[in-house]
């Protein structure tokens, strides 16, 4: 019975994924490996041969590499701040969690309203007399500004996701551990790095994986702020699927996104290995 139990528990989810994910997924995989009914790798060579591929690839990687660590630190800071607080904890948490409810399309809209020429940033600077007339931020020549704007928007939008997971995890760490460490003279920083972080490993792992998966699919915010000047993998997937009507190449792009996501997730799983049952 006990040996069958885990499989029984996994059964509903597995069956569900088999039907609704693996079946269509298999069809798309086949699509990425065929062209006109024949098995070929041409979709992949077409993809890598396109002049935008490597830009899109590296943009996606760089965005992830910059955004995710910043978010991790911010999420940890937010969660710790909330834990320290004695009053107003629920209200503050709610405020921090607000971006959760905002779709990436809406987030792109908000940040475009801030950065565009007649936008809020220019209005603020104008009100303080810093500038006489609107400055241009999102021009195609200043790619790094677009990149920065996308980073800010992504950090704003998706930090809450990590924070909520981390807050839930922190709530499970017994207070006694921290109290004991304090008795032995550990500073707040030492307590954080030696007690809280190690015990938080399961939540950190989950938060990081989920965030990385979404980072590789970044699209709507980039589209809103950078248009096509800052190509990303997901944007190219859409482009090939719908504008260029070449589903094979689009499927190849999707496979690249999948490969990157799985690879990075495995790295996180290894780095933050969680032992069974967390016998602490």
């Amino acid at each position: 019975m006990n040996r069958a139990l885990p499989y029984l528990l996994l059964l509903p989810a597995s069956l569900f994924l088999l039907v609704f994910f693996f079946y269509p997924f298999g069809l798309v995989v086949v699509e990425s490996l065929t062209r006109g009914g024949e098995w070929t790798t041409e979709n992949f060579t077409r993809m890598t041969g396109h002049w935008k591929f490597s830009t899109a690839f590296w943009n996606t990687i760089w965005l992830t590499a910059i955004v995710v660590p910043v978010q991790l630190i911010m999420a940890l800071a937010m969660a710790s701040v909330v834990q320290k607080l004695k009053t107003g904890r629920a209200g503050l948490l709610y405020i921090f969690a607000i971006p959760l409810g905002i779709s990436d399309l809406a987030a792109g809209l908000v940040w475009l309203a801030i950065f565009e020429q007649s936008g809020f940033l220019n209005s603020i600077l104008h009100a303080f007399g810093v500038i006489d007339r609107p400055q241009l931020y999102l021009g195609y020549q200043s790619l790094w500004v677009i990149f920065l704007a996308v980073c800010l928007a992504e950090i704003w939008r998706a930090t809450a996701i990590m924070m909520v997971i981390i807050v839930a995890g922190m709530g499970l760490i017994p207070k006694e551990y921290n109290e004991a460490a304090e008795v032995f003279g550990a500073s707040a920083w030492q307590r954080f790095t030696r007690v809280t972080l190690p015990l938080l490993r399961p939540s950190l792992q989950t938060a990081l994986i989920l965030r990385i998966l979404m980072a590789f699919e970044v699209f709507a915010v980039v589209m809103a702020l950078g248009g096509t000047t800052l190509p990303v993998l997901m944007g190219e997937t859409f482009q090939w699927q719908f504008q260029l009507q070449d589903r094979g190449v689009a499927a190849a792009y999707a496979m690249v996104i999948l490969g990157l996501s799985v690879a990075f997730s495995l790295v996180v799983l290894r780095l933050l290995h969680v032992p069974k049952g967390a016998r602490i």
Partner: peptide
């Protein structure tokens, strides 16, 4: 040269 560079948006 005389086009608003934000045209890409």
């Amino acid at each position: 040269e005389h086009t608003n560079p934000a045209s890409t948006n």
